[in-house]
Each structure stands twice: as structure tokens, then as C-alpha cells.
Design a protein around this nucleic acid. Sequence first.
DNA 1: CCTATTACCGAACTCATGTTCTTATTATAT
DNA 2: ATATAATAAGAACATGAGTTCGGTAATAGG
Lengths: 208, 208
Amino acid sequence: MANLRQRQQDILEFIGGFIDGKGYPPSVRDIQEGCSISSTSVVDYNLEALSKMGYLKRSKEISRGIELIGHRLSTARIPLLGSISAGQPLPVFPQDQTMLEDNTIEVDPSFVDLQTPVFALHVKGDSMIDALIKDGDYVVIKSQEHAETGEMVAVWLIQEEETTLKRFFPEGDKIRLQPENSSMSPIFVDAKNVQIKGRVVGVLRKYK
Amino acid sequence: MANLRQRQQDILEFIGGFIDGKGYPPSVRDIQEGCSISSTSVVDYNLEALSKMGYLKRSKEISRGIELIGHRLSTARIPLLGSISAGQPLPVFPQDQTMLEDNTIEVDPSFVDLQTPVFALHVKGDSMIDALIKDGDYVVIKSQEHAETGEMVAVWLIQEEETTLKRFFPEGDKIRLQPENSSMSPIFVDAKNVQIKGRVVGVLRKYK
DNA sequence: CCTATTACCGAACTCATGTTCTTATTATAT
DNA sequence: ATATAATAAGAACATGAGTTCGGTAATAGG
């Protein structure tokens, strides 16, 4: 019956509004009142159902221990690790190091999948201009160590000690790193001189 | 003494991190443990001080009733109003209408300045390809009704009943809407047939 | 040195709040 | 129809958690 779905819809909406309005999640009894539900146990019941369905996360025994999935502010805040393609060395990859607020950038939560780390790099230079990525853009990168042929990746050149943004083409024991700029030539490097940092999954540009 | 300031600084930081991590504010005892404070009353004491100084808001008698001032600014969820340049009509501008979760997109907070509404549009077509904006990208638009010469704007063509993304060039009582695509010609329209919806302040692209 | 003020401590108190249990009321299926 | 599960209700329970209070240490002013 659609009645149930309606009630749970109501609850979700109420929780969202409550958090937005007050800054902290509602208690079970807040929800009870706000959604005109007769008993706290009914609220509990439906919260459990919503939790199982993945709409929210509950912390047992904790007052207001409700976290709306997707509603979180921080999930989408990813570290801005530095610049790429400028010959600037990328620091040792910080798994989950605390970043200063200024070194993070907010992206759509859909970029983040909770499994693999995601980070951003500030693009220097126009080597990927034909892929519509220009100097000053931010690329969102999903951390991974392997890449498929032709994928756009951030690679660390061990010898040169620099990071660069290119398309990835393995050719025997060499690797062709192909810029997307008709005026630039591909780079051929030894396979073991290349360390893939991640794959580009998004681009973000800001205008002044 | 700087000791006080240090402790309160710690508390503020802890609260922020806690909220980011768990999705709900910490209890007094969470703070006590997290900041290695001997007594809950000390936490209460300092929370009260921080509250008086305006760093946070407390709700009396409410578990985890702490709201960090300014912390919610990191939420920058803006409405995704529709598509542009596809001849699809843009609905009446919803100031602060409740949007379905699917119709919003998360952007960096720096896009939003609390004064002017900001929204996003899904780009259809390649009329701005030379500006490195391609089909499928999202443009972040700051709502405004006037534009400077040459600015990239989203305009509503009243007669044609469609929205389009172009650069703006007033020429007498006509307006030249210039695509950034060498294979496309500018459009000349009557000034009073044009209603500027906003200016492009950002671009967001997602790769599969 | 004495006094006032601020910051801190520990414990007890009380209520807010999540949880559980029992029973009644529907749905869904056999 | 009858069994079985899903949903709801109300009350009681247990504890999470804000608050209070008496007292101590540190700081500042006279």
C-alpha cells in the first residue's frame, strides 16, 4: 500500500527539513510529532526500514543519531592535492589526512563512492585542451593504479619526478602518454617509470 | 591566557570534525572525551562561552543540540533547473522551492554568495564548444538580469520560448548572441525579445 | 596579602530519548 | 477462510545526556 511509502517519504522530508532548520537531527519524538505519528515505536520501525533501504544511517543508542545519506555536507568535500602537469611534484598520497579547509574543494556527491579515494588537481597548462580541459580547471581524480587503454589519467613520472595529465596507451614495454593538444607530441616512457595515480572522472571550471 | 582560547579552539574543531564524520553533532560527553576534558561541566561552561561569542548556537535541554555557525555554509547544493540550448522551456524561476534530491547538484561553496540565487543547467549541444563547454556539461549560473558585453549568459528568447547559452553583445536595439563554435553563426534578436536569466560562473563535467 | 573574578573539577540529579514488549490491526498468501 | 507476515499502537524500561551545585585552582586588581 502506498500509505507506507507516503509515511516514510514524510519522515525523510521531515528529517531533512529539521536538519536544515536546526542544524542537528531530530529525535524520534520530534519525528513522531512532526509527522503526526501515534507512537515512537512506529517511528523507530520506519526509521529501521529506511535505514535498511539505505536512505539513512542510524547510530544505536545515540540521541538524534540519524544521518541522512546524500544529505551530508562533507561527503562531497574532497582534498585538492596540488597542481598537475606543471612539473610540480605530487606529495606522498595522503589517504585520509586532515586537510586544511582551503585545500579542499566541493564536488557533487556522485563523484564519491566511498570505496576509492577521490581527489582534485588544479590543471596547469593546455596539454588537454582538445579534451576541453584548460589551464586553471580542476580535474576530479579517482584513485587507481591501473588504467584502460585510452583513459585519461594522472600519472607520476618517477624519474622526472613530476605528475602529468595524459591519455594512457600501453605499447609493449613502453607507454605512450598522449596529450590532447594537436600542437603537442606524445611522450614515450618506460613502463616502469610510470606510476598511475588515478583516472579523471570530472572537470570543474570557475569563471571570475 | 592563551590556554582558554586553545581549549575552545579545540572544542570548535572537534565539533566540526564530529559533524562532518558522523552527520550529527556530538554530545557534551563526546566533546569531553574527544578533547580530554575532565568534566562535563567544563564542556558546558566553554560551550556557553562559545555560544555567547557567537561561534555556535545551543538548544537548551536538547541532546546534541549544537549548531555550528557558518559550518552549514559548506553545503552548496543548488537546484538543477533543466537543460539549456535544447529549446526546452525553462520554468518560472523557483526562488527557494523544495527540489527533489535528484534535481540538485553539489558545487563548491565559493560559487554561492548568499545574495544572488545560483542554479545549474545541463548543456545540450555544442554551441559553446570553443569555450570548452560541451554537450552534457553542467553550467553553473548566477542569476542576474543584466550582462556586460561579451559575457557568457543564459538567455530566454521570449518569442521562441527557449533558453540558450551564448555570449552577449548588445548592438543598438538588437542583440547579437554569439555562439562559441566556429561552425555556427551568431543570432541577432530584438533586445526586447531577450530576457537574461543569468551569467555563467562555472562549468562541471562528469566522465563515465 | 586579601578579595574578586574566571576557569576548572567531580559528582549527583533529572529529564530527554532510544529501545523493547505486548497487543491490535491490517495486508498477502496458501 | 486461515495462516503468516507486515504495520501500527501504547506503555514501560533503561540509559544517554544536559544541567546544577558545592568546591578548588588560577589569575587579576588593589
